[in-house]
Simulated scan of single mutants.
Amino acid sequence: MLWFVGLGISGTRSIPIEVVKIIQEADFVYLEAFTSPISKQHEDEIKNMVNGSFKIAKRWLVEDGQEILKTSKSSTVVLLSYGDPYVATTHIELRTRAKLENIETSTIHSASAITSMTGEAGLQFYKVGRMVTIMNEKKSTITPYTAIFKNLTQGLHSIILLEYNHDENYFLDPKDAISNLLDVEKEQKRNVVNNDTFAIVASRIGFKTQKITSGKFSNLLKVDFGEPPHSIIITGKLHFTESDAINVLTECLDKPSDNSSRIKSTSIQMIEKYVPMVRDTLEEIKSLYNDSKEFQVVIQNAELYINDAENFLKQGKDENAVLSIGYADGLVDALRIAKGIDPKI
């Protein structure tokens, strides 16, 4: 028997009575410590509840899973984790493997810091987009940067988890994560983030020392957020009730603002770049075909495609707009090639 048990977000204070009983009756208890930090006090308190064997489970032990699965075939095993057990994909995989090996499994769900921080900050959870993690390595920040961009184009909030390495007791500081995002912006230049980007930093959610600070990047970079763990939320389109709640529920350094209002989708960026470029190029090449009636239809079609691209964009049909300017660009290139002009110039 293998239990997947969530301990909630407040350490031993949030452990339900039924979980205490399961822990006490288990033959083996593994306390997973790599998805969220566990204080020595809480570790000792949990260990004192255990009547069977107790072991801290590092990442490799859970990812490998063989020891846990082998033990679960003949004994009652409990895998404890802070928050909800299935926020971690590693636990879902382990449960899947257990099922395939005909090991009975059961689950105790609990509150997760991911869902809790959203409400604690005054945001509406159904407006949260894809969640990402920022690591210390700056090169890896391009992936969360892109995810934030996509979330903002839809007006969605972005929850950003920060790197935590249990073995090295390392936590990425929110200020370093913000700096990494700003560095990526300098390279990508897609206007996803800047010093005026409004964000929320949630610290130690569920604990007595919980703190939630909000403000522009420029001001958050000056804040000492204290002990970890920390997470960041970059807000998308804010409902007025969310703005009001942020002002009241967080230490608000700046007026809450909509980060999505300045974001342009990739399609819009492409159209704004290519429509004038293709139109100017067409105007330049047209004079070379004044005496070539057979090419006038091609020129007219290119003009129509350019106009279609602009009209489709106004109608919100971004994909059609991109296709139209692509067709126009192809016709213009064909006209240039017919006159021996390199289309790349």
Rank of each mutant, 00 (worst) to 15 (best):
S140I: 06
E168D: 09
L161H: 02
I233R: 03
G215S: 12
G226V: 08
P174K: 01
N180E: 01
N195T: 03
L161C: 13
Q210S: 05
E227P: 02
H239F: 07
N195G: 02
E137Q: 15
I233V: 10
D183L: 14
P174C: 07
I234Y: 01
S203N: 13
L172A: 02
K138N: 04
P144L: 07
K186N: 13
L220S: 05
I233H: 05
E185G: 14
V193L: 04
P144G: 08
F217Y: 13
G226H: 09
K208H: 00
H166G: 00
S218V: 12
S179M: 03
H157P: 01
N194P: 07
D173W: 03
N180C: 00
T141F: 12
F240C: 04
S140H: 10
T213S: 05
I232P: 08
S158H: 10
T146H: 13
P144D: 02
F149P: 00
N151H: 08
Y164T: 12
I234C: 10
H166Y: 14
K175D: 09
V193R: 11
P228I: 05
L156H: 03
S214Q: 10
H157Y: 02
G215Q: 07
D173K: 08
F198Y: 12
N195Q: 15
K150C: 10
D196T: 15
S203G: 15
P229Y: 06
Y164E: 07
K189A: 06
S231K: 04
T209W: 04
L172N: 12
F171H: 13
V223Q: 15
I159M: 13
N180P: 05
T213D: 09
D224R: 07
N195S: 14
F171G: 01
N169A: 12
V192F: 02
T235P: 11
K216V: 09
L162N: 07
I212N: 14
E163P: 07
N151I: 07
I142Q: 15
I233C: 01
A147K: 14
S140K: 15
S203E: 02
